[in-house]
Design a protein around this nucleic acid. Structure first.
Lengths: 396, 396
DNA sequence: TCTACTTTTTCCACTCACAGGACAAAGGCG
DNA sequence: CGCCTTTGTCCTGTGAGTGGAAAAAGTAGA
């Protein structure tokens, strides 16, 4: 089913759509308070938006003591698809035009199975969401992939952990399959957009969003806009050297942050500790599950296991050291920590904070909150929905 | 003498002024080719600019085979003052409205003597330039100081190497003294703007400009605009840890980049080497000059002194390591190396390049030029003139 | 219940920026 | 010397947008 989603005809309409998206239903008068337009002009633009079907009239607005007014809201039938492709799992969610999550499902999947297999999975999940009555079709989709993306074309470029994806026309292919506009971005950037839209970063113009999952990446927001760098690889901090002559890394260097701390590194370290008999807690989990992941380390740490806590602290120190450098360089107004290892929680956060507050200059850290992300695994898909809505709610 | 410099009344006029600044004299027709305005509208705006006196008619334009046309140019009497306050010296230059340097003088001076003494010096230098007939007065001035600045107010904040400057209202005070608008910024940001306007970074939107002088700093340009960070301390990379548990630094930490490589550190290392008799070349210079600076090291290196070359290579490696991290994070389209130690030239550059190209990922370094600044000590003052002209050539 | 006051919406006339065509001025070229 | 091109000037039409007046529809108090 093809849906003919209209686009705003001018900047005023785009502005109005974003106000309605971020502020929910509003009367014309309330919109007038937030936008710098005369009542007459506003009425004209709203009427045009009503004609396109992008927005609809919707009951009476709460009275402010005068003539009753009708609410205007984004068409409640609009649906966006948010897709977050991780290294080891896929998240898919449906939102309405106000970016409220209507349904969210997760499925384990190795990204290395390649774009064709992954897309099959994504489409199956999207179909499932449709089948459960949440959507009849999609008006747009945002996709996050765990690697650098040539943003304008929506094509992954030289992604280290995604063999087979290099140069694959993700945007084009998915747009074809779904029959709607698609935008593609790095998963970390989408997490940053998610936390900016609905999470801890709502009021901050310049911030960093560090995602510690299978790998480590960092979303950079400058003046409210995601910064992607010259070739789309900005924020690729996993291969910054954290330990001189440290562990060998898949990238060919030694001592990369990612080699010393990440979901993958943590799992390996924990396994080693369990095998060496350093931790009964980890050893028993190893036997039970036939392997260890970051989740096991988190659980062991929560149970007070000293080895697990040490691993987290050690990794937090390394990460904090790198972040301290980034803070000195970038002087953000906020640092958000998120990703799969958020379960490591405050032990990790404390270690990172200690390093940053100790190593960076007071002027940069003086009023710098370092916090965990608020949205957890939803950040990516919300960010994806936000990405496509930003695109569709801009003049064509 | 107070000069009543007009300001553009709207964005079109601002645009025209910047075209004339960056492209020199142009006929109305040529301007029309570069701006998206009808000929009639263009004529009106040009006429208004002529009325304000900001631009003047100036002879005939080169014929393109039709009716002859008059050139329009920025008022040749306009004068900007560019001031670059370094840690150990002050640069002052006069430019015309096209930012061509008409005169440039340098005077050694320790910034630690405080704002009052430094301003006395700056005003004396400005008076000297005036006396030599280069200017009758100034229409605006840009000032660079070696420390973080709260940009909107033009006030240094917590500058580590500038005791006595914290909170001093530089912009206000100098505006009073000079009788013209003043803008203040970090010296490194101005160097970046200088190289962007007239140097190697003319065509690049996102780049880094690393200045290695008495200290080390980095100008960050995002989308053609200088990024200053939340508190104005962005680019303060001198205190990023380059050596774990390395040398103690004035900031209280250990292993800061600045403690291991900078003009000051280099002078100290060279002195040590001379005293230990590791290098005859350096020792003889030490005796001759009664001390050593980065300039001596550069000269010794140029003469083939192995110790001097080692010092430079070692420092370049450290710096390159930090820059490699920044490149991974920021993914710039260009890295410019400048500042006092540019004299160390290609030995330094080679060491930096080696580290960056080895440590950062290919996608970020693939097409990344790392070059020396083109303007040398003029970059700062040109950047300062550019700063104030950007301000004055924007709608009031 | 009636009156006075608000809030909101709709309608209309007026302003202003701007585009684009017509025309004049001033050159080159065969 | 005539024709074409380029440039500058004038003039009018158009459409965006403002702001006031009036109508519509409510609340609060006498």
């Amino acid at each position: 089913m093809r849906r003919m989603t209209a686009r705003p005809a001018n900047a005023h309409q785009a502005r109005l759509l974003k106000l309605l998206r971020d502020g929910g239903p509003n009367s014309r008068a309330q919109l007038g308070d937030q936008i710098d337009l005369s009542r007459s002009k506003l009425a004209v633009e709203v009427d045009r938006l009503l004609e396109t079907g992008l927005v609809v009239a919707d009951g009476l607005a709460a009275s402010r003591g005068g003539r009753r007014s009708h609410n205007i809201r984004l068409n409640p039938g609009l649906r966006f698809l948010g897709v977050d492709i991780g290294a080891t799992s896929v998240d898919v969610a449906v939102t309405n035009a106000e970016l409220e999550t209507l349904g969210h499902i997760n499925h384990p999947m190795d990204v290395r199975e390649g774009p064709v297999a992954v897309f099959e999975q994504v489409l199956a999940m999207a179909a499932k969401l449709k089948a459960s009555g949440l959507a009849e079709g999609f008006d747009g989709a945002g996709i996050g992939v765990p690697g650098p993306v040539r943003f304008p074309e929506g094509i992954p470029v030289a992604p280290p952990i995604m063999p087979g994806w290099d140069g694959f026309p993700v945007r084009e292919a998915l747009s074809q399959e779904l029959g709607c506009p698609v935008m593609v971005d790095n998963d970390v950037n989408l997490m940053a957009m998610g936390e900016q839209h609905a999470g801890v970063a709502r009021t901050v113009a310049d911030f960093l969003c560090v995602k510690i999952g299978t790998g480590i990446g960092c979303g950079i927001v400058v003046g409210g806009e995601v910064y992607r760098g010259t070739t789309g690889s900005a924020g690729d901090i996993g291969h910054i050297q954290a330990v001189p002559d440290g562990r060998p890394c898949a990238c060919g260097n030694r001592g990369c942050l990612e080699a010393h701390f990440s979901g993958a590194a943590l799992a390996r370290d924990a396994t080693e500790a369990a095998q060496q008999g350093l931790s009964d807690e980890l050893a028993s989990r190893w036997e039970t599950n036939g392997g260890l992941t970051a989740v096991d380390v988190a659980a062991a740490a929560a149970a007070g296991d000293a080895t697990a806590l040490d691993l987290i602290r050690e990794g937090g120190n390394r990460t904090g050291q790198v972040i301290a450098g980034l803070v000195s360089f970038f002087n953000p107004g906020l640092v958000v920590i998120g990703g799969g290892v958020t379960g490591l929680g405050h032990t990790l956060l404390a270690a990172i904070r200690t390093q940053v507050y100790r190593q960076s200059l007071p002027l940069a850290t003086g009023n710098l909150p370092i916090v965990l992300g608020e949205l957890g695994p939803a950040a990516g898909v919300i960010g994806a929905a936000r990405l496509i809505s930003d695109h569709l709610f801009s003049p064509a």
